[in-house]
Each structure stands twice: as C-alpha cells, then as structure tokens.
Design a protein around this nucleic acid. Structure first.
Lengths: 64, 64
DNA sequence: ACATAATGTAAAATATATTATACATAAAGT
DNA sequence: ACTTTATGTATAATATATTTTACATTATGT
C-alpha cells in the first residue's frame, strides 16, 4: 500500500504538525504514515480525504 | 461512523462467510463491522470497495 | 417438528495503529 | 555561523482491530 499524503500536504502548504493538529493526532502519526511505517485507520483516511477534498482512493492504493 | 456493508453484501448475494473468505478475514470481523462494533482497517475498507465496485466513501461515512 | 444454514455474541489472545517522550538531522532565515 | 523550524527516527506504553473458539439465536427448507 502506498499513499500520496505528503504530496497533498505540501500542496496545501501544511507542515506535518499543522496536519496533525487538524486531525487531532500526533505529528509522529503523520510522519509514520508518510514514510509508510504503517497504514492509518479508516477513520483517519476518511478525515484526510475530507481535508484534501479528494477521495480515499486518491490518497491510498492497495497496490505496492 | 456508519457503513453500508450489509446492504452491499446482500445485494451481491453473499453470506458473511462468503465475504470473509473473499477478504481473507474471519466471519466475526465482517459481523462486527456490520454491527458497528469497531471500524475496519483502511486496507479492509479499500478491499471492500474493490469487491463491491464502489468508493470507500460509498461504504463508510464519518457522520453518525 | 426437525435439520441446516446464517447470524449474533462473548471472552481471551494476538497484531497493529497511535501516543508520548526524546533526540538527531536537515532546511530556512537572519 | 547561529537560531529556529521542519522532519526523521527510536523505544516503550496504550488503544484498537482482528482472530480463535465456542455457543446461542434466528431464518430457511423439507
């Protein structure tokens, strides 16, 4: 599974901390997701899509 | 968070066990998700959307 | 009524996501 | 060069998803 969080975040001119605050999660969580340490929860995925005004599938894909 | 898994599953004429097998998870996992015991992982959410040929947002929504 | 299939549910165990804290490095501004 | 901001990383602790096993209940078919 890969994701495009970092691209969207930078496009939206946000730091990892900015994004973490908007989502009410820790900065480490954002960092870990961007660096593929683990996959976020479905709830976080939906919230991220909402913030970036795109679909969950735009952010995450199953294919490696 | 609510979901429409059961509706899609029944529409596709599958039992909880059928779906569990296709996803390679236990039947209890499907049952728990349908009955809102917990939210599935993002990976499961993406796989469910793929099976039902719809978007993750069609299956799960953040609103209560 | 009986048998079978499908579903609901529960408790303990395991896997994984997330937090907290902390420190190291890189980038940017002055 | 110095300071500040942003990012990468590590470890231990906590929260949550998932499995396993098992049994109860509901629906369906005969």
């Amino acid at each position: 599974m890969k994701n495009t969080i970092k691209i969207h975040r930078v496009t939206h001119d946000m730091t990892q901390e900015d994004l973490a605050n908007r989502l009410d999660v820790s900065r480490q969580t954002i960092n870990a997701i961007e660096n593929n340490k683990y996959f976020p929860s479905l709830e976080l995925g939906l919230k991220l899509a909402r913030i970036f005004k795109c679909s969950v599938e735009d952010l995450f894909s199953l294919e490696v």
